[in-house]
């Protein structure tokens, strides 16, 4: 065993160089398609550009400074989108308690329970386009079940997707369906790993029901809750698909959210306002950055604690 760890120069070099070689392809792709576009969008938000190049292939945008952002401040559609995003964020958080409730309901060992758990998880596996179509059918005026239900209760059916005051709530309900399923699966996995001896000890001390859940179980579910919050926030802010499928932002733009309004401005029928779209994206990015920083900070703390 005399050769020990050979630290000849070539071995040493190999070990300094190796990580960068392994990283190179992935980092290259990630830089080209993710990191650089972020910087590019930040810059573009200071320009007025229709997305075209002139015949020599030169960029045709004009620098306008903060004009796009100034316009945002007085743009009523932007304000609506921002408010709707807030509604999405707040109401999406309902996925946590409901998901936990379903997880607790399903955390049993009876025959066929595995199949039940998978079927409850179903909505998350389905594309949001399909979820949107399903709920559009559910909400459809005249024959949709929701319409019939409101008609039976109030005597007057509600076409929720055609009502500017209610439309966003209707879409959020559709979005919650898969989101609850995701949170449920996180909590089911978490419940599986709650320390049984602690539960037994708490039971001996007379804890049960809600008290048990709140004081004994929930603290142990913290990792699951953390991930659930993160994925729910991201889900809420990414709410493009459902809005696009169910209402295209309507009626009268009342169900727009930032992600959809940005798309409308940059690629929609209102013309190719790339710079203005980029400015909306930057605002959305800034909101998301608050949560991303929180996540990274928590990860960094966990890493240094190791």
């Amino acid at each position: 065993m005399a050769q020990a760890v050979s630290r000849t120069p070539s071995r040493w070099n190999q070990r300094t160089l190796a990580p960068w070689l392994f990283l190179a392809p992935g980092m290259f792709m990630f830089t080209v398609y993710v990191l650089w576009p972020i910087c590019s969008s930040l810059l573009l938000s200071l320009y007025d550009w229709d997305g075209l190049y002139n015949r020599e292939g030169q960029f045709t945008g004009t620098f306008v400074g903060l004009a796009n952002y100034r316009e945002l401040m007085i743009d009523p559609a932007f304000e609506t989108s921002l408010w709707n995003n807030l509604k999405w964020l707040v109401l999406y958080m309902l996925a946590l308690p409901i998901g936990l409730l379903i997880a607790v309901f399903l955390n049993q060992t009876v025959t066929g329970i595995r199949l039940y758990k998978s079927l409850f998880f179903f909505p998350f596996v389905i594309s949001q386009v399909v979820v949107g179509l399903m709920f559009a059918w559910f909400y459809a005026p005249r024959f949709g079940l929701f319409y019939l239900l409101t008609e039976a209760i109030t005597g007057d059916g509600t076409a929720i997707l055609a009502d500017p005051d209610l439309v966003t709530y209707g879409i959020i309900a559709a979005g919650l369906w898969p989101q609850i399923a995701y949170v449920m699966i996180l909590y089911l996995t978490g419940l599986n790993n709650v320390a049984p001896d602690q539960i037994e000890a708490a039971r001996l001390d007379g804890a049960k029901g809600w008290k048990m859940l709140w004081y004994v179980i929930l603290p142990q579910l913290r990792p699951a809750t953390f991930i659930a919050v993160i994925v729910t926030v991201i889900g809420a802010l990414r709410s493009f698909d459902l809005v696009s499928i169910m209402t295209s932002g309507g009626p009268f733009g009342s169900s727009r959210v930032l992600s959809y309004y940005m798309f409308e401005m940059a690629l929609g029928e209102f013309g190719f306002r790339m710079g203005y779209g980029a400015a909306i994206a930057v605002v959305l990015f800034a909101i998301m950055m608050v949560f991303i920083s929180g996540f990274i900070w928590k990860m960094w703390r966990d890493e240094s604690a190791r």
């Binding site: 990630f30 398609y33 993710v34 990191l35 650089w36 576009p37 972020i38 590019s40 969008s41 573009l44 997305g51 993160i230 991201i234 802010l237 990414r238 493009f240 930032l258 992600s259 940005m262 798309f263 940059a266 690629l267 790339m274 779209g277 980029a278 909306i280 994206a281 930057v282 959305l284 990015f285 998301m288 949560f291 991303i292 996540f295 990274i296 990860m299 960094w300």
Partner: peptide, 18 residues
């Protein structure tokens, strides 16, 4: 952390350049 953070960014900030 760059990889992790990049994974969470809204798609819209990438849209025009991509």
């Amino acid at each position: 952390f760059l990889f992790v953070a990049g994974n969470f960014v809204p798609f819209q900030i990438l849209m025009v350049p991509v």
